[in-house]
Design a protein around this nucleic acid. Structure first.
Lengths: 210, 210
DNA sequence: GTCTATAACGCGATAGAC
DNA sequence: GTCTATCGCGTTATAGAC
Protein backbone atom coordinates (compact mmCIF):
# COMPACT_ATOMS: atom_id res chain seq x y z
CA UNK A 1 0.00 0.00 0.00
CA UNK A 2 2.67 2.44 -0.93
CA UNK A 3 1.04 4.51 -3.67
CA UNK A 4 -2.68 5.16 -4.25
CA UNK A 5 -4.05 2.86 -6.97
CA UNK A 6 -7.56 4.10 -7.69
CA UNK A 7 -9.99 2.92 -5.09
CA UNK A 8 -9.33 4.52 -1.73
CA UNK A 9 -12.38 6.20 -0.26
CA UNK A 10 -10.59 8.48 2.17
CA UNK A 11 -7.54 9.88 0.45
CA UNK A 12 -6.75 12.74 2.77
CA UNK A 13 -7.49 10.91 5.95
CA UNK A 14 -7.64 13.26 8.91
CA UNK A 15 -5.46 11.88 11.71
CA UNK A 16 -8.10 13.01 14.17
CA UNK A 17 -11.10 11.42 12.49
CA UNK A 18 -9.95 7.83 12.34
CA UNK A 19 -12.75 6.51 14.52
CA UNK A 20 -15.37 8.34 12.50
CA UNK A 21 -13.85 7.23 9.21
CA UNK A 22 -13.99 3.62 10.35
CA UNK A 23 -17.64 3.92 11.38
CA UNK A 24 -18.66 5.64 8.17
CA UNK A 25 -16.83 3.16 5.97
CA UNK A 26 -18.26 0.19 7.81
CA UNK A 27 -21.77 1.58 7.51
CA UNK A 28 -21.41 2.04 3.77
CA UNK A 29 -19.86 -1.35 3.22
CA UNK A 30 -22.47 -3.27 5.21
CA UNK A 31 -25.21 -1.49 3.27
CA UNK A 32 -23.58 -2.41 -0.01
CA UNK A 33 -22.41 -5.93 0.65
CA UNK A 34 -23.60 -7.21 4.03
CA UNK A 35 -21.36 -8.34 6.88
CA UNK A 36 -20.76 -11.93 5.97
CA UNK A 37 -17.57 -11.52 3.97
CA UNK A 38 -16.73 -8.09 5.21
CA UNK A 39 -13.28 -8.29 6.74
CA UNK A 40 -11.41 -5.95 9.01
CA UNK A 41 -8.71 -5.87 6.35
CA UNK A 42 -11.10 -4.48 3.79
CA UNK A 43 -12.55 -1.91 6.14
CA UNK A 44 -9.08 -0.74 6.97
CA UNK A 45 -8.05 -0.51 3.33
CA UNK A 46 -11.21 1.34 2.31
CA UNK A 47 -11.05 3.75 5.23
CA UNK A 48 -7.40 4.43 4.59
CA UNK A 49 -6.23 3.23 8.01
CA UNK A 50 -4.43 0.18 9.31
CA UNK A 51 -6.17 -2.91 10.53
CA UNK A 52 -4.63 -2.50 13.96
CA UNK A 53 -6.23 0.93 14.31
CA UNK A 54 -9.63 -0.66 14.21
CA UNK A 55 -8.66 -2.76 17.21
CA UNK A 56 -7.34 0.29 18.97
CA UNK A 57 -10.67 2.14 18.68
CA UNK A 58 -13.04 -0.82 19.05
CA UNK A 59 -12.78 -3.84 21.26
CA UNK A 60 -13.64 -6.27 18.49
CA UNK A 61 -15.67 -6.58 15.34
CA UNK A 62 -19.07 -6.93 17.07
CA UNK A 63 -18.35 -3.78 19.09
CA UNK A 64 -17.63 -1.95 15.85
CA UNK A 65 -20.98 -2.97 14.39
CA UNK A 66 -22.81 -1.82 17.51
CA UNK A 67 -21.06 1.53 17.36
CA UNK A 68 -22.11 1.93 13.75
CA UNK A 69 -25.73 1.36 14.71
CA UNK A 70 -25.91 3.56 17.77
CA UNK A 71 -23.55 6.37 16.83
CA UNK A 72 -23.95 6.27 13.08
CA UNK A 73 -27.66 5.79 12.52
CA UNK A 74 -29.76 5.83 15.66
CA UNK A 75 -28.46 9.00 17.25
CA UNK A 76 -29.10 11.19 14.18
CA UNK A 77 -32.69 9.95 13.91
CA UNK A 78 -33.34 10.63 17.57
CA UNK A 79 -32.39 14.24 17.00
CA UNK A 80 -35.01 14.45 14.27
CA UNK A 81 -37.66 12.72 16.37
CA UNK A 82 -37.16 15.01 19.35
CA UNK A 83 -37.80 18.06 17.22
CA UNK A 84 -40.87 16.64 15.53
CA UNK A 85 -43.69 17.49 17.96
CA UNK A 86 -42.86 21.18 17.90
CA UNK A 87 -42.57 21.38 14.13
CA UNK A 88 -45.73 19.36 13.64
CA UNK A 89 -47.89 21.76 15.64
CA UNK A 90 -47.94 24.34 12.90
CA UNK A 91 -48.94 22.01 10.04
CA UNK A 92 -51.96 20.14 8.78
CA UNK A 93 -52.28 16.51 9.82
CA UNK A 94 -51.38 15.33 6.34
CA UNK A 95 -48.30 17.53 6.13
CA UNK A 96 -47.06 16.46 9.53
CA UNK A 97 -47.55 12.78 8.78
CA UNK A 98 -45.82 13.12 5.43
CA UNK A 99 -42.79 14.73 7.02
CA UNK A 100 -42.50 12.11 9.71
CA UNK A 101 -43.12 9.09 7.54
CA UNK A 102 -40.59 10.21 4.96
CA UNK A 103 -37.96 10.44 7.67
CA UNK A 104 -38.98 7.16 9.26
CA UNK A 105 -38.80 5.19 6.05
CA UNK A 106 -35.35 6.57 5.30
CA UNK A 107 -34.31 5.64 8.80
CA UNK A 108 -35.50 2.09 8.25
CA UNK A 109 -33.70 1.94 4.95
CA UNK A 110 -30.46 2.97 6.62
CA UNK A 111 -30.71 0.77 9.69
CA UNK A 112 -32.09 -2.44 8.16
CA UNK A 113 -28.81 -3.60 6.65
CA UNK A 114 -27.24 -3.23 10.07
CA UNK A 115 -30.04 -5.07 11.79
CA UNK A 116 -29.68 -7.88 9.29
CA UNK A 117 -26.04 -8.00 10.25
CA UNK A 118 -26.96 -8.16 13.93
CA UNK A 119 -29.57 -10.84 13.39
CA UNK A 120 -27.18 -13.13 11.61
CA UNK A 121 -24.80 -13.50 14.52
CA UNK A 122 -25.79 -15.12 17.82
CA UNK A 123 -23.61 -13.08 20.11
CA UNK A 124 -24.31 -9.82 18.37
CA UNK A 125 -28.01 -10.57 18.47
CA UNK A 126 -28.24 -11.16 22.18
CA UNK A 127 -26.03 -8.29 23.25
CA UNK A 128 -27.99 -6.01 20.95
CA UNK A 129 -31.33 -7.16 22.31
CA UNK A 130 -30.17 -6.56 25.82
CA UNK A 131 -29.04 -3.04 25.10
CA UNK A 132 -32.14 -2.18 23.11
CA UNK A 133 -34.46 -3.49 25.80
CA UNK A 134 -32.56 -1.58 28.46
CA UNK A 135 -32.91 1.68 26.54
CA UNK A 136 -36.52 0.82 25.65
CA UNK A 137 -35.80 1.28 21.96
CA UNK A 138 -37.65 -0.34 19.09
CA UNK A 139 -40.40 0.24 16.55
CA UNK A 140 -42.86 1.06 19.30
CA UNK A 141 -41.10 4.36 19.88
CA UNK A 142 -42.20 5.60 16.49
CA UNK A 143 -45.70 4.31 17.08
CA UNK A 144 -45.91 6.12 20.39
CA UNK A 145 -44.66 9.36 18.92
CA UNK A 146 -47.24 9.37 16.15
CA UNK A 147 -49.90 8.07 18.50
CA UNK A 148 -49.26 11.00 20.79
CA UNK A 149 -49.41 13.42 17.92
CA UNK A 150 -52.73 12.00 16.71
CA UNK A 151 -54.13 12.12 20.23
CA UNK A 152 -53.27 15.81 20.43
CA UNK A 153 -54.89 16.45 17.06
CA UNK A 154 -57.98 14.60 18.21
CA UNK A 155 -58.37 17.15 20.99
CA UNK A 156 -58.25 20.00 18.52
CA UNK A 157 -60.85 18.27 16.38
CA UNK A 158 -58.62 17.89 13.34
CA UNK A 159 -58.70 14.13 13.80
CA UNK A 160 -62.04 12.34 14.13
CA UNK A 161 -63.14 11.75 17.70
CA UNK A 162 -63.71 8.01 17.27
CA UNK A 163 -60.24 7.12 16.01
CA UNK A 164 -58.08 4.73 18.04
CA UNK A 165 -54.81 6.61 17.86
CA UNK A 166 -52.38 3.84 18.79
CA UNK A 167 -53.79 1.48 16.20
CA UNK A 168 -53.80 4.21 13.58
CA UNK A 169 -50.18 5.01 14.42
CA UNK A 170 -49.35 1.34 14.02
CA UNK A 171 -50.77 1.32 10.52
CA UNK A 172 -48.82 4.40 9.56
CA UNK A 173 -45.51 3.19 10.94
CA UNK A 174 -46.03 -0.23 9.41
CA UNK A 175 -46.20 1.32 5.96
CA UNK A 176 -42.89 3.10 6.54
CA UNK A 177 -41.28 -0.12 7.63
CA UNK A 178 -42.65 -1.94 4.61
CA UNK A 179 -41.31 0.64 2.19
CA UNK A 180 -37.91 0.54 3.86
CA UNK A 181 -37.76 -3.23 3.91
CA UNK A 182 -38.76 -3.61 0.30
CA UNK A 183 -35.93 -1.32 -0.71
CA UNK A 184 -33.50 -3.18 1.52
CA UNK A 185 -34.59 -6.53 0.17
CA UNK A 186 -35.07 -5.90 -3.52
CA UNK A 187 -33.11 -2.76 -4.24
CA UNK A 188 -34.44 0.37 -5.89
CA UNK A 189 -35.62 -1.64 -8.90
CA UNK A 190 -38.78 -2.84 -7.21
CA UNK A 191 -40.04 0.58 -6.22
CA UNK A 192 -43.00 0.59 -8.59
CA UNK A 193 -44.50 -2.57 -7.21
CA UNK A 194 -45.82 -0.97 -4.05
CA UNK A 195 -48.08 2.08 -3.66
CA UNK A 196 -45.99 5.14 -2.84
CA UNK A 197 -45.56 6.16 0.76
CA UNK A 198 -46.94 9.57 -0.12
CA UNK A 199 -50.19 8.22 -1.51
CA UNK A 200 -50.57 5.76 1.34
CA UNK A 201 -50.07 8.35 4.05
CA UNK A 202 -52.40 10.78 2.31
CA UNK A 203 -55.10 8.13 2.17
CA UNK A 204 -54.62 7.44 5.85
CA UNK A 205 -54.81 11.14 6.69
CA UNK A 206 -58.06 11.27 4.73
CA UNK A 207 -59.50 8.31 6.63
CA UNK A 208 -58.56 9.91 9.93
CA UNK A 209 -59.75 13.44 9.30
CA UNK A 210 -62.78 12.83 7.14
CA UNK B 1 -38.15 -23.68 17.60
CA UNK B 2 -36.39 -25.40 20.49
CA UNK B 3 -36.89 -29.11 20.37
CA UNK B 4 -34.77 -31.93 21.76
CA UNK B 5 -33.43 -31.94 25.32
CA UNK B 6 -29.77 -32.70 24.91
CA UNK B 7 -27.84 -32.69 21.68
CA UNK B 8 -28.89 -34.75 18.71
CA UNK B 9 -32.00 -33.61 16.95
CA UNK B 10 -32.51 -36.51 14.59
CA UNK B 11 -31.50 -39.71 16.29
CA UNK B 12 -33.31 -42.20 14.11
CA UNK B 13 -32.43 -40.54 10.85
CA UNK B 14 -34.40 -41.90 7.92
CA UNK B 15 -32.00 -42.85 5.13
CA UNK B 16 -34.48 -41.47 2.64
CA UNK B 17 -35.14 -38.10 4.25
CA UNK B 18 -31.62 -36.78 4.40
CA UNK B 19 -32.27 -33.79 2.20
CA UNK B 20 -35.36 -32.84 4.17
CA UNK B 21 -33.59 -33.33 7.48
CA UNK B 22 -30.82 -30.99 6.37
CA UNK B 23 -33.30 -28.31 5.29
CA UNK B 24 -35.32 -28.57 8.48
CA UNK B 25 -32.28 -28.47 10.71
CA UNK B 26 -30.78 -25.52 8.89
CA UNK B 27 -34.05 -23.60 9.13
CA UNK B 28 -34.25 -24.14 12.87
CA UNK B 29 -30.63 -23.27 13.48
CA UNK B 30 -30.70 -20.06 11.48
CA UNK B 31 -33.82 -18.98 13.34
CA UNK B 32 -32.15 -19.66 16.67
CA UNK B 33 -28.67 -18.40 16.07
CA UNK B 34 -28.32 -16.72 12.69
CA UNK B 35 -26.02 -17.80 9.88
CA UNK B 36 -22.85 -16.06 10.85
CA UNK B 37 -21.24 -18.80 12.88
CA UNK B 38 -23.37 -21.61 11.59
CA UNK B 39 -21.06 -24.18 10.06
CA UNK B 40 -21.72 -27.08 7.78
CA UNK B 41 -20.10 -29.25 10.45
CA UNK B 42 -22.72 -28.24 13.00
CA UNK B 43 -25.62 -28.69 10.62
CA UNK B 44 -24.37 -32.18 9.82
CA UNK B 45 -23.96 -33.08 13.46
CA UNK B 46 -27.39 -31.74 14.44
CA UNK B 47 -29.16 -33.37 11.51
CA UNK B 48 -27.43 -36.67 12.19
CA UNK B 49 -25.74 -36.86 8.80
CA UNK B 50 -22.21 -36.40 7.54
CA UNK B 51 -20.82 -33.14 6.29
CA UNK B 52 -20.18 -34.64 2.89
CA UNK B 53 -23.87 -35.51 2.52
CA UNK B 54 -24.68 -31.83 2.60
CA UNK B 55 -22.41 -31.31 -0.37
CA UNK B 56 -23.97 -34.23 -2.14
CA UNK B 57 -27.48 -32.74 -1.91
CA UNK B 58 -26.60 -29.06 -2.29
CA UNK B 59 -24.04 -27.42 -4.47
CA UNK B 60 -22.68 -25.23 -1.69
CA UNK B 61 -23.73 -23.42 1.45
CA UNK B 62 -25.54 -20.55 -0.34
CA UNK B 63 -27.55 -23.07 -2.35
CA UNK B 64 -28.60 -24.72 0.88
CA UNK B 65 -29.88 -21.46 2.30
CA UNK B 66 -31.86 -20.74 -0.85
CA UNK B 67 -33.44 -24.17 -0.70
CA UNK B 68 -34.45 -23.56 2.90
CA UNK B 69 -36.20 -20.35 1.89
CA UNK B 70 -38.02 -21.55 -1.18
CA UNK B 71 -38.82 -25.15 -0.23
CA UNK B 72 -39.04 -24.75 3.52
CA UNK B 73 -40.93 -21.50 4.06
CA UNK B 74 -42.20 -19.84 0.90
CA UNK B 75 -43.93 -22.80 -0.70
CA UNK B 76 -46.13 -23.59 2.33
CA UNK B 77 -47.30 -19.99 2.56
CA UNK B 78 -48.17 -19.87 -1.11
CA UNK B 79 -50.51 -22.77 -0.57
CA UNK B 80 -52.31 -20.77 2.11
CA UNK B 81 -52.44 -17.62 -0.02
CA UNK B 82 -53.90 -19.40 -3.02
CA UNK B 83 -56.78 -20.69 -0.96
CA UNK B 84 -57.53 -17.36 0.68
CA UNK B 85 -59.82 -15.65 -1.85
CA UNK B 86 -62.28 -18.51 -1.81
CA UNK B 87 -62.38 -18.82 1.97
CA UNK B 88 -62.67 -15.06 2.38
CA UNK B 89 -65.82 -14.80 0.31
CA UNK B 90 -68.00 -16.26 3.03
CA UNK B 91 -66.78 -14.03 5.86
CA UNK B 92 -67.16 -10.46 7.05
CA UNK B 93 -64.43 -8.03 6.06
CA UNK B 94 -63.04 -7.97 9.57
CA UNK B 95 -62.95 -11.76 9.85
CA UNK B 96 -61.27 -12.19 6.49
CA UNK B 97 -58.64 -9.57 7.27
CA UNK B 98 -57.95 -11.09 10.66
CA UNK B 99 -57.39 -14.52 9.16
CA UNK B 100 -55.06 -13.26 6.49
CA UNK B 101 -53.04 -10.88 8.65
CA UNK B 102 -52.46 -13.51 11.31
CA UNK B 103 -51.04 -15.85 8.68
CA UNK B 104 -48.98 -13.11 7.05
CA UNK B 105 -47.33 -11.99 10.25
CA UNK B 106 -46.44 -15.58 11.15
CA UNK B 107 -45.03 -16.12 7.68
CA UNK B 108 -42.96 -12.99 7.96
CA UNK B 109 -41.69 -13.99 11.36
CA UNK B 110 -40.56 -17.34 9.95
CA UNK B 111 -38.87 -15.98 6.87
CA UNK B 112 -37.12 -13.00 8.42
CA UNK B 113 -34.19 -14.88 9.93
CA UNK B 114 -33.53 -16.32 6.50
CA UNK B 115 -33.77 -12.96 4.81
CA UNK B 116 -31.32 -11.58 7.34
CA UNK B 117 -29.02 -14.40 6.37
CA UNK B 118 -29.40 -13.56 2.69
CA UNK B 119 -28.90 -9.86 3.23
CA UNK B 120 -25.67 -10.33 5.07
CA UNK B 121 -23.86 -12.03 2.22
CA UNK B 122 -23.09 -10.30 -1.06
CA UNK B 123 -23.34 -13.26 -3.35
CA UNK B 124 -26.39 -14.69 -1.67
CA UNK B 125 -28.04 -11.29 -1.83
CA UNK B 126 -27.63 -10.77 -5.53
CA UNK B 127 -28.57 -14.28 -6.59
CA UNK B 128 -31.60 -14.10 -4.33
CA UNK B 129 -32.70 -10.73 -5.72
CA UNK B 130 -32.40 -12.05 -9.22
CA UNK B 131 -34.54 -15.07 -8.50
CA UNK B 132 -37.12 -13.10 -6.54
CA UNK B 133 -37.44 -10.48 -9.25
CA UNK B 134 -37.82 -13.16 -11.87
CA UNK B 135 -40.65 -14.81 -9.97
CA UNK B 136 -42.11 -11.39 -9.09
CA UNK B 137 -42.08 -12.25 -5.40
CA UNK B 138 -41.88 -9.79 -2.54
CA UNK B 139 -43.99 -7.95 0.02
CA UNK B 140 -46.09 -6.45 -2.76
CA UNK B 141 -47.69 -9.82 -3.38
CA UNK B 142 -49.44 -9.62 -0.04
CA UNK B 143 -50.51 -6.06 -0.76
CA UNK B 144 -51.95 -7.04 -4.12
CA UNK B 145 -53.84 -9.97 -2.67
CA UNK B 146 -55.49 -7.86 0.01
CA UNK B 147 -55.99 -5.00 -2.43
CA UNK B 148 -57.86 -7.33 -4.74
CA UNK B 149 -59.98 -8.60 -1.89
CA UNK B 150 -60.88 -5.07 -0.79
CA UNK B 151 -61.73 -4.09 -4.36
CA UNK B 152 -64.15 -6.99 -4.58
CA UNK B 153 -65.73 -6.04 -1.28
CA UNK B 154 -66.08 -2.47 -2.50
CA UNK B 155 -68.26 -3.75 -5.33
CA UNK B 156 -70.55 -5.49 -2.90
CA UNK B 157 -70.79 -2.35 -0.81
CA UNK B 158 -69.25 -3.86 2.30
CA UNK B 159 -66.27 -1.52 1.90
CA UNK B 160 -66.84 2.21 1.48
CA UNK B 161 -66.93 3.37 -2.12
CA UNK B 162 -64.34 6.11 -1.67
CA UNK B 163 -61.56 3.90 -0.27
CA UNK B 164 -58.29 3.58 -2.20
CA UNK B 165 -57.84 -0.17 -1.96
CA UNK B 166 -54.13 -0.46 -2.77
CA UNK B 167 -53.19 2.14 -0.19
CA UNK B 168 -55.45 0.56 2.38
CA UNK B 169 -53.89 -2.82 1.67
CA UNK B 170 -50.47 -1.29 2.11
CA UNK B 171 -51.41 -0.07 5.58
CA UNK B 172 -52.79 -3.45 6.59
CA UNK B 173 -49.83 -5.46 5.34
CA UNK B 174 -47.34 -3.00 6.79
CA UNK B 175 -48.73 -3.66 10.25
CA UNK B 176 -48.32 -7.42 9.79
CA UNK B 177 -44.77 -7.09 8.64
CA UNK B 178 -43.94 -4.73 11.46
CA UNK B 179 -45.34 -7.09 14.08
CA UNK B 180 -43.30 -9.91 12.60
CA UNK B 181 -40.18 -7.80 12.54
CA UNK B 182 -40.52 -6.66 16.12
CA UNK B 183 -40.71 -10.27 17.25
CA UNK B 184 -37.73 -11.21 15.13
CA UNK B 185 -35.72 -8.28 16.37
CA UNK B 186 -36.57 -8.13 20.06
CA UNK B 187 -37.88 -11.59 20.85
CA UNK B 188 -41.21 -12.39 22.42
CA UNK B 189 -40.42 -10.18 25.41
CA UNK B 190 -41.33 -6.95 23.66
CA UNK B 191 -44.77 -8.01 22.57
CA UNK B 192 -46.66 -5.66 24.85
CA UNK B 193 -45.01 -2.56 23.51
CA UNK B 194 -46.91 -2.48 20.24
CA UNK B 195 -50.69 -2.50 19.73
CA UNK B 196 -51.85 -6.02 18.95
CA UNK B 197 -52.34 -7.04 15.36
CA UNK B 198 -55.92 -7.96 16.19
CA UNK B 199 -56.83 -4.53 17.50
CA UNK B 200 -55.02 -2.80 14.66
CA UNK B 201 -56.73 -4.79 11.95
CA UNK B 202 -60.11 -4.36 13.61
CA UNK B 203 -59.64 -0.61 13.70
CA UNK B 204 -58.70 -0.61 10.04
CA UNK B 205 -61.74 -2.71 9.16
CA UNK B 206 -63.86 -0.18 11.02
CA UNK B 207 -62.32 2.75 9.12
CA UNK B 208 -62.95 0.99 5.82
CA UNK B 209 -66.50 -0.18 6.39
CA UNK B 210 -67.90 2.63 8.49
C1' DG C 1 -2.09 6.30 18.08
C1' DT C 2 -0.71 4.31 14.13
C1' DC C 3 1.84 1.22 11.71
C1' DT C 4 3.86 -3.72 9.61
C1' DA C 5 4.06 -8.40 10.16
C1' DT C 6 2.46 -12.62 11.77
C1' DA C 7 0.29 -16.15 14.66
C1' DA C 8 -3.49 -19.30 15.70
C1' DC C 9 -7.58 -20.95 14.36
C1' DG C 10 -11.72 -22.67 12.13
C1' DC C 11 -13.97 -22.88 7.94
C1' DG C 12 -15.82 -24.69 3.34
C1' DA C 13 -15.10 -28.04 0.31
C1' DT C 14 -13.09 -32.51 -1.67
C1' DA C 15 -10.99 -37.33 -2.22
C1' DG C 16 -11.74 -41.80 -2.08
C1' DA C 17 -13.36 -46.04 0.43
C1' DC C 18 -17.55 -48.49 0.99
C1' DG D 1 -25.58 -42.00 -1.24
C1' DT D 2 -23.13 -41.85 2.72
C1' DC D 3 -19.13 -42.03 5.21
C1' DT D 4 -14.06 -40.61 7.38
C1' DA D 5 -10.21 -37.91 6.89
C1' DT D 6 -7.80 -34.05 5.36
C1' DC D 7 -6.16 -29.78 2.91
C1' DG D 8 -5.67 -25.04 1.79
C1' DC D 9 -7.18 -20.64 2.68
C1' DG D 10 -8.87 -16.47 4.77
C1' DT D 11 -10.07 -14.71 9.04
C1' DT D 12 -9.70 -12.22 13.61
C1' DA D 13 -6.75 -10.51 16.64
C1' DT D 14 -2.04 -9.38 18.65
C1' DA D 15 3.13 -8.08 19.19
C1' DG D 16 6.16 -4.78 18.99
C1' DA D 17 8.55 -0.94 16.41
C1' DC D 18 7.94 3.95 15.78
Amino acid sequence: MTSEPASTRKRGRPPEGVREAIIETTLAMIAERGVARLTTKEIAREAGVSEASIYYHFEDKPALVEAVIFDGVLAPFQVFARGFPERAGTRTVEEALLEFTAALSVFWERILPLLSAVQSDVDLRSSFQERVNQLDLGPHRGVRLIGGYLAAQKETGRVRADVEVEQAAMLICGACYLIGYQKHMLGGAAKRKLPSLRATVSEMARLLTR
